[in-house]
Design a binder for these strands. Sequence first.
DNA 1: GATCACGTGTTGATTTTTCAACAAGTGTTT
DNA 2: AAACACTTGTTGAAAAATCAACACGTGATC
Lengths: 184, 184
Amino acid sequence: MDRRIQKTRQLIMNTFLDLLAEKGFEKITISDIAERANINRGTVYLHYVDKFDLLDKCIETYVELLLNHCANSTDTNLSASAFQSVFEYLEKNFTIYKLLLSNEGVGFFRSRLYDIIAQTVTEVIGIKPENNAFSNGITTHFLTSGFIGVLEWWINNSMPCNVQEITEQLMFLLEPYTKRFVSL
Amino acid sequence: MDRRIQKTRQLIMNTFLDLLAEKGFEKITISDIAERANINRGTVYLHYVDKFDLLDKCIETYVELLLNHCANSTDTNLSASAFQSVFEYLEKNFTIYKLLLSNEGVGFFRSRLYDIIAQTVTEVIGIKPENNAFSNGITTHFLTSGFIGVLEWWINNSMPCNVQEITEQLMFLLEPYTKRFVSL
DNA sequence: GATCACGTGTTGATTTTTCAACAAGTGTTT
DNA sequence: AAACACTTGTTGAAAAATCAACACGTGATC
């Protein structure tokens, strides 16, 4: 992709997040963004149809970035190193995810993340054929909610414990299920 | 001027100065700059004919910026507030001017600054007609060298005293001449 | 001596961004 | 009700940056 596109999209999103932290979503205008980013107002419309679209794309982007840092981990799934790299990434980009998760993300970020993780959990459970014998919906939502709950708690409380600790604790809590459901 | 021009020139100069600090002028290549700045190599040639031209323009820009901060001061010339704002600006942009003054500016920055200040001093002295009675060349170069010497000493020694002190001291040293030559 | 890797400076076609102007909507002030 | 300031979303022409490719020079390596 053209470097200019990457750069301007990045710039617009960063500016948007800055303003989100400063004044909240409703008070943000397209003119605000253009002015702060020092780009032409028309350029914003070249990439996003309106500020709602921008919020969507923003959420989509940061959900993807978060999950990529999980996929890039050496092991495939549910391994300690996968969780560790997720939490390390969160730690590095703390301010952004704190913003997206709390108040101003308007809950959209959380629900988008939830859907994708639930999807993944369903697939992981489905690998072992014998798991299909009983209702996996309950299991999926139990595990997904648990994981996201921990993630939210950790971010909203400004990372009260370090990455190492939260990873270990999470692995301990998941241990019974990794044995039962995962086919590795 | 088009925002794109301002931005790319700024970006190229900043990248150039970064590389100047890192590896020195000779080892810098145009490709280096383009790569680090994440712009097309051709774009650099759109603004500068080669790296020597870039160095020139860079020096010119930062000499002008320095002098603007003098001109923008409320009083016209040789006033404490004028000097103060110059040193405040230098303090704010310490790393850049340290770089331009020492080794890697290759002396071009100093001599360019010298010429302009000498020019200004000549003009200031010339305001009072009776000054023309004797050789002003000597006076001009005495005052210019003195001022630049102080400036260089202050920067090269990493600002060993604060802005207030250096301004006062300089005003004290210049006092006999402000009385004699300036027409305020 | 040939080859290779690398930097230079330039070209032309393509894409993105800019700018200024527009019509339309909204809320505030007089 | 009219005037005002401000934001929205869109338009077309102009300017800029991008990309891939070129010929050329230089120095190292085989």
